[in-house]
Amino acid sequence: MLAECASLTEAMAVRATIAEAGLPGVTEIVPGARSVLVVAERSALDPVRRLVEAADLQHPPEGSPREIVLDVRYDGEDLDLVARTAGIGADDVIRLHTGAEYTVAFTGFAPGFGYLTGLPEPLRQPRLETPRTRVPPGSLGVAGEFTGVYPRSSPGGWRLIGNVGTTLFDPKATRPALLAPGDKVRFRSVS
């Protein structure tokens, strides 16, 4: 079943509502920016539909999110560009970025890449006009309303503000992706 949502906030609320309910027969919940895919046994689809239709999407369940702290060296090649565009100093970019609490809204683009909401308004900036052909793994970027960390080397157009040393995706691990939808994330500045 694919639930199409009016906004990212609504999609996050639908995901949280379904996850919190723990309905039997639901095998996977895959949120996106404006949709939620529910993989379930046929018998679970009607209960899921009724649950979503009756949900209070303005006050979704909070559940018990995991809290993850990622250490960052704020030395990204676009740090000064982000500061100039925001009309603030680089130290202010770091202060704003580390002072916010983020939520993993959804994952995608590459295995282990989390789209994190909660980015302070001054740091919400457009993607680069010309994407890079190679972004190093661990690069921390901002684009639009999101911040995120590239889990592996790939092309990318986000403005890079730092580097995270934590492995975000390990296919050999019991839980390959460190970040999952609903997780709370904070960034801590390190030298």
Results as ranks from 00 to 15, higher is better:
S7G: 04
A11H: 02
M12N: 14
M12S: 11
V14E: 13
T17N: 14
A19K: 15
A21K: 14
G22D: 14
L23G: 00
E28I: 03
E28P: 03
I29K: 03
P31E: 08
P31D: 07
P31Q: 08
G32T: 11
A33F: 02
S35R: 06
S35I: 03
V38F: 10
R42D: 12
R42C: 02
S43R: 11
A44V: 02
A44N: 02
L45R: 08
D46T: 15
V52K: 09
A54L: 10
Q58Y: 08
H59K: 14
G63F: 09
G63L: 08
S64L: 07
P65T: 13
R66Q: 05
R66H: 06
E67M: 10
I68C: 03
V69I: 09
V69S: 10
V72Y: 07
V72P: 05
D80A: 13
L81R: 11
A83M: 06
T85A: 11
G89F: 13
A90P: 05
D91M: 06
D91T: 13
L96E: 02
G99Q: 09
G99S: 07
G99N: 06
T107Y: 06
G108D: 08
G108F: 06
A110T: 15
P111H: 10
P111M: 10
F113K: 04
G114W: 04
L116Y: 04
P120D: 00
Q125F: 00
P126Y: 03
R127E: 01
E129F: 00
R132F: 04
V135D: 08
P136S: 14
P137R: 15
G141I: 04
F146K: 02
F146G: 00
T147E: 04
G148H: 10
G148E: 10
V149T: 13
Y150H: 10
P151H: 09
R152A: 15
S153P: 08
S153K: 12
S153W: 06
S154P: 14
P155I: 05
G156K: 08
G156V: 09
G157C: 06
G157M: 06
R159D: 02
N163L: 13
T167W: 01
L168H: 10
R175A: 11
R175V: 12
P176T: 12
P176R: 14
A177D: 03
D183L: 07
K184T: 13
K184P: 01
V185Y: 11
F187S: 06
S189D: 15
